[in-house]
Structure formats: C-alpha cells, structure tokens
Design a protein around this nucleic acid. Structure first.
Lengths: 224, 224
DNA sequence: TAGATTGTTAATCGATTAACAATC
DNA sequence: TAGATTGTTAATCGATTAACAATC
C-alpha cells in the first residue's frame, strides 16, 4: 500500500467514502465515476481522484471505479482487515451502550474485554465481553496484545487510567471522556469523541443562522 | 457580536478554547496570553489571536486575556447563553445514556422531551425528561419551539423521522445514527456523531504507525 | 474508432504563520 | 518609561480545483 504523507482532511473523508460505497453496494450499483461519487458526497470529482491517488490507482479510464473493488481498497487503507484487538475501560452508561450496541467487528475490531471498578460488574459478561477488575488491567495488558483502548471512564479517572494504559504499551486511545488527553510530549494516538464539542458546534451554526435571519429582517423592516 | 464569514476550522476550535479556559479557571488562573494558550493546545499564538479576532477584541496589549471574560465571550459566541430547547428521538441504549448522563444544561440546552415508539417507555420519565409517543411528535413540534433534535433512533428510522422533524420546522439535528443525513438540497443543519468514522480514523493512524515501524525495521535489517 | 473518465500536473484559493505597529 | 502582548496586515504554506494528456 502506497502511503505518502496523507493530510488529515483526506483521512477524515475515507470513512465517508466507505459508507457511501457500502450504500451503493446495498443498492446493487457496481460502477461509479468520481463525478457521481462527488455529487452524492458534496465533493468535487477532482478532490475524490486526488484523495484516492494518495494510495494508488484504483480506477480505470473511461469506466470509473468498480464499487466492490474500491470498497475493499478503502477498507484496507483504513486497516479494517488487520483484526485489531480492543478493550474497553469503564462500564458505565456509555461504555455499556457501546459494548451492547456498537458492532466493533463490523469495523475490523475485536472487543476482547472490559474493565471496571464496581465489584458487582466484575465477572459478568455483556454481549460475550467479560468484565474484569481494574486491578487486573496491568496484567492483562502485559499478557495480551491490545491495539486500542476505549476510554469510557468518569472524568476524574481519565488521566490516571491513561497513565496505566500507556505505561503498559497501549499506543492508541478512543477517548469518550470530556478531557483533553492529547499531551504535547506523548506519542499516544488519541481519537476523541467529544459530545459537547459537537453539540457546541451545532449551537454555533444555529446561532449564526438566527442572527443572519434577524439581521435580514431588521434590514427589511428599515426599508419599509 | 461581530460575525464575519468564519471558517469551519475556527468553529471547531472554539469548543476546545472553552474547555481549556474552564480548566484554567478550575486551576484558579485568571490571566493567559496567546502564547500560553497556544502551548497548552498545540496551536500557534498567531492562530489563536486570528481566531478570536473573527469575533472582536477580547484581549489587552501587554497583558493578554482575562480568563473569565474570555470564557464568557467564547460561550456567548457558541450560543451557550441562548437557552435552546432540545428534544431527543429514540430512547434506546445511546438515547437513554444521553438523557441520564449528558448534562445538556451545562452547554446551554434544555432537554424538554424524549420520544419513542415502544409502548412500555411512553409515559415514563428519565432524569426529569418525559418520554412521549412518536405519534405525538408532530403536534409537540407544532406547539413548542424546538431548536434542535437529538436523533438516536435505529438506522432505518433515521430518514423518515428526519422527514417529520424538518417538515415541522426543526432546523438542526444532532445525528447519532450512522446514516448520512446531509442532503444536497436541504437547509437543515446536521451535526454528526459518527462513532464508526471516528474509530476508522483511529484505525488508520494505528495502521500508519505500524507500517512505518515495519518499514524502518526492514531497512535496518537490510543494513545488517 | 469515439466517448468517457482516469491520474497527475498546474493554477487557484484559503488557512496558517510571521511580522510589526499600536498600546496597555 | 520599558516590557509585554495584542490585533492586524503581509507572507507563506497547504489544500482544493481546474485542466489535460493518457488510455480504457
């Protein structure tokens, strides 16, 4: 796999391509051009061709892209065929929801264990995932290859738990706590799901629209 | 509030500024310069000053920024003082988790009602939020000002429910379904929480690191 | 062959960074 | 006053778009 310096923006678009390609597959469509794909995703054909060309040549002149083949390429670029092993820390509300409802295997991950401090949870199993004691975490990390940790602990536990994870070789964290884990000196890969950041962006866009509407109304009222 | 054409990137940084300013406040720090803020967030001082200058002049030469004042400005820019009204559709696992654990009011929102199709849920209350029947949704939207809808329904319901929402005046959707709601011809503001997109990005970064490590190891092995 | 569409090079656009006068 | 730091203008950098030869 060709892997030049790929910009962040490109990487963020890859999962969208995957999603659209799966949708086309579900519709029985096996062929797509960069123009069609662009139209459906609100991107220019140029951008789509540029994006794919970071990784190789997946199309065919005069034809376009074969949907199933392109889908497999994108999946492979994203690492979906690598069978990464994940664990989850913090079986609270959101952690529990993820274990029960988020299909890790659809995205190439195996969720092998969960950890919590609550004695009543330890030893139980949700959706075939065993819940272990936080005390067993270091040993588990030493004895098993863990590629990513899903962090769904309460705010206060975020930093100390991250400490344990990184000191036992975990290099990637999927962070659901509303804490800025990304530290300047750390080499850990952190991907954040910041609910509040997302909601506040939405709040901004709503406010912007309301302000524009009010400004327009005021202008028109002045005119008469 | 000055509100020029503000780029998406700036808007996405605003919630991070807010978070950091709250953290500084919690530490009892009342004064911060763009350099300090930049250092802590991994941004250049220039960028921070540019970002704020989209909205006004919040600093003071020779001094920097007063943390509480700046915090209030950022909060106001994001619309946190506008008391938007939210409803939630789909009281499944993730919807339930949001109702119980996500503090909407911390971000200026009031979650006034939830809706579901399951008879056993209708009439119940979680965290003071009443669950109503989906059949009552249109009437509720007609009789109440609803600024945003939180969409936590199963995949198949996403598009039909969105249809109901937009046809009854809801202009903004916080979308937790793994469905691309953003339609080319629609004026609805959609903010997505795509768990899988996020996980796949993380998967990409992990793969990239592994590939680089392997490539380096191979080079060194060849050298001897 | 003619039409279509790719992959890539060049041009444009926008965002980030640097520099600096203004001023607290 | 001197030092610090802003807000803003100019320079740089990077990402997106346009153009086009290659070719299926």
């Amino acid at each position: 796999m060709k892997r030049l310096k790929v910009s962040n923006n490109v990487i963020r678009r890859l999962p969208r391509y995957l999603r659209k390609l799966d949708e086309l597959t579900a519709q029985g469509i096996t062929r797509v051009s960069s123009s069609e794909l662009g139209q459906q995703l609100g991107l220019t054909p140029s951008q789509i061709r540029q994006d794919f060309s970071c990784f190789g040549e997946f199309g065919q002149q005069g034809y376009g892209y074969h949907v199933p083949a392109l889908r497999e390429q994108v999946a492979s670029i994203l690492g979906m065929d690598r069978h990464y092993c994940a664990i989850l820390i913090g079986v609270g509300n959101i952690g529990h929801a993820l274990i029960d409802n988020f299909c890790f295997s659809d995205w190439g991950f195996q969720l092998s264990a969960a950890f919590d401090v609550k004695p009543e949870l330890i030893g139980t199993t949700f959706n075939k995932v065993p819940v272990m004691s936080m005390e067993d975490l270091p040993r588990y990390l030493d004895e098993n290859q863990v590629d990513i940790a899903v962090l769904t602990v309460p705010k206060d536990a975020a930093v100390p738990v991250t400490q344990i994870l990184t000191s036992h070789g975990v290099e990637a964290i999927w962070n659901f706590t509303n804490v800025e884990l990304t530290e300047p000196n750390s080499s850990t890969i952190v991907e954040n799901i910041h609910f509040s950041d997302s909601l506040l962006s939405l709040s901004y866009y709503v406010s912007e629209r309301i302000d524009e509407r009010n400004a327009r109304a005021a202008r028109e009222a002045r005119k008469g």
